[in-house]
Simulated assay, not measured.
Amino acid sequence: MSELEQQPELLLSLEALIFASDTPMSVARLQQALGNTYSSADIRQYLQQLAVLQHGRSIELVETAQGFRFQVRAKYQPIITQAWPERPTRLSPSLLEILAVIAYHQPVTRADIEQIRGVSNNSQVLRTLFDWNWIKESGFRELPGKPALLVTTPQFLNAFGLNSLDQLPPLQDAKEAFMALNVPALSA
C-alpha cells in the first residue's frame, strides 16, 4: 500500500482510538497504539487533517493539556443539556473564584486565596477541587507552619478545554469568563 492509500485508514484508526478512549490521547500514546510506525510530527499532521474532516459536524477534535479528544461543539450544548439534564455540573461562584485565584496566581496557599478573595475559604469547595483533581499541592512555602502551595493540574486544563494556562482570558475578564464557561460533563 502506498502512503496515499494508507492515509484514509490511518485517519480512521486515529479517530477510532481517540473516540474509544475515556481520556484524552497524547501524541505519544497514539504513536504507541499505532506500533511506533509514525513520527510525532506525522501524527500531529494527521490529527490536523482529522480535525479538518470534522468541519461542519456536531463534534470537533480538540487538544487539551492531556491530549486529543472529541467533544460536542458548543453550538449543540443546549440540546445535550435538554436530553441529559443531570449531566452538566453547575459550578458555584465561590468554587469559580477559588479556582480562578489558583489558576491566575499559582502557586498559592490557602491564606493567599483568602487574602485575594477577601473572605474565608469554604473547605468543602477546596475538597471538591482536590476530588476532581483540578488542583494539587506542589511544595510548601518557607513560612512558619510550612503552608502547602496549591496549583492547577492538567485535568483542570482538560475540563475547560485548555492546552495551557496561557490560554486563560486576561485577568480582568476572568470572573466573567469562568462564569460563562459551560463545563462539559465531568470525567472525574
Rank of each mutant, 00 (worst) to 15 (best):
V183Y: 00
Y76S: 12
G35L: 14
S120G: 09
F160Q: 00
I79K: 06
E15L: 10
R141Y: 04
P78S: 08
R57D: 06
G145A: 07
Y104Q: 02
R90T: 15
R73P: 02
A20W: 12
L91M: 10
L126Q: 06
M25Q: 14
Q172D: 14
Q155R: 04
P24Y: 05
T128Y: 07
E176C: 05
L14N: 08
E142S: 09
V101W: 00
F68Y: 15
R90H: 12
L4G: 08
G139V: 08
E114C: 03
A41Q: 13
L149Y: 02
F130C: 04
W132K: 04
P78F: 04
G67W: 02
P93T: 08
A28W: 05
R57P: 02
E15C: 10
Q6I: 05
Q66H: 04
V151T: 12
D112W: 06
N182H: 12
V72K: 01
L129G: 01
R117K: 10
L143E: 15
A177C: 08
L168N: 04
I98Q: 05
A16F: 07
L50S: 04
A51I: 10
F156T: 01
A148K: 05
G145S: 09
L150N: 01
V151Y: 01
Q172S: 09
L12H: 09
S2D: 15
H105E: 07
L143H: 08
L95D: 00
L165H: 05
A180W: 07
V108T: 07
